[in-house]
Write a protein that binds this DNA or RNA. Structure first.
Lengths: 159, 159
DNA sequence: CCATTATAGTTGCAATTGATACTATATCAG
DNA sequence: CTGATATAGTATCAATTGCAACTATAATGG
């Protein structure tokens, strides 16, 4: 394999295949693509838009800034998704009495109906992919993800 | 929480927070961003470029098409990364004797040196994030990722 | 062989994304 | 108060991305 110049200081084969940042990104992209196609086809929603719908459903009166820090979406992405959803009449943006720079977001009637249609579909997609795992396995997996989050954020709070 | 109109058909709170496609994407983006910044700052490499370097190091004489199907990178992404690496003199592209449409890629001297510099750094980054987990935990985690890959690919081979 | 269809790789274009600059409002020090 | 600095959200622009069309070569059926 012509490794003559590499004094086996480093395992030359298959670094990438086992490399966790790569594996994580590979799997995440696979899942995201599948899910994004479904949202788009069924509800005409992008992933950021669906995330806003879900977060606003969960926390009526949330601000864009709060959405950004909860989900780590860029504030520009949040702004655009909010504008698109408001244009479609799915959310309402009311003035924030305690801070006139920001707005309180809430689902409209139509938005609520959309949410009630999307949420079960989202859970169904989740089951299609994750249904083959036991509850214990899923629990372990999510705990791992959260520990990874902590590790990255501790190592580089600037990210 | 003003859920009067939702006849609790659906758990209204925190769907997104527990939703695995979201959690997976969140963590993956966190890790990718941290890693991408390091490659860029230290070696001037984008993530696709680093992936090509690693795959070519691992399999001398690989074609772009093989790189694409191994890594699921778009052939356009692969093409551009290959052109950039060739322009920088990091890889060589030799004619493929058995198929004149394609080219066999190999690291140049400089590319080999780069690889030998990047690989330890990549592993170091990996340790910084994943070093706090036991071997058994990491094994479980990667097995889960691969099972998720299979689930998605079986459910939707078109992705 | 030749015609048809498929594939490797590149190029052009359009959509998505994020950094930056900007506007309006808020906060804080003096 | 007032001036200086910080923050919420938007607009602008440049970079990244991937689809679609294209070129060159290969494979296949007649």
């Amino acid at each position: 394999m012509s490794n003559a110049t590499v004094p086996n200081a480093m395992p030359r084969d298959l670094i990438l295949e086992r490399f966790l940042p790569y594996r994580l990104s590979y799997t995440s992209n696979l899942v995201s693509d599948a899910v994004a196609d479904t949202y788009k086809a069924l509800f005409g929603l992008t992933i950021p838009e669906w995330r806003l719908v879900a977060l606003i459903a969960e926390r009526e009166g949330i601000t864009q800034q709060e959405i950004g820090s909860l989900s780590r979406m860029d504030k520009v992405t949040v702004s655009r998704a909010a504008i698109a959803l408001a244009d479609r009449g799915l959310i309402e943006r009311k003035p924030n009495p305690v801070d006139r720079r920001s707005q309180l977001l809430a689902l409209s009637e139509a938005g609520t109906r959309l949410y009630e249609a999307v949420a079960p579909k989202a859970l169904e997609m989740e089951r299609a992919v994750f249904g083959r795992f036991s509850d214990a396995e899923l629990e372990t997996f999510t705990v791992m993800l959260r520990r990874i989050d902590s590790a990255v954020l501790e190592a580089d709070p600037g990210v």
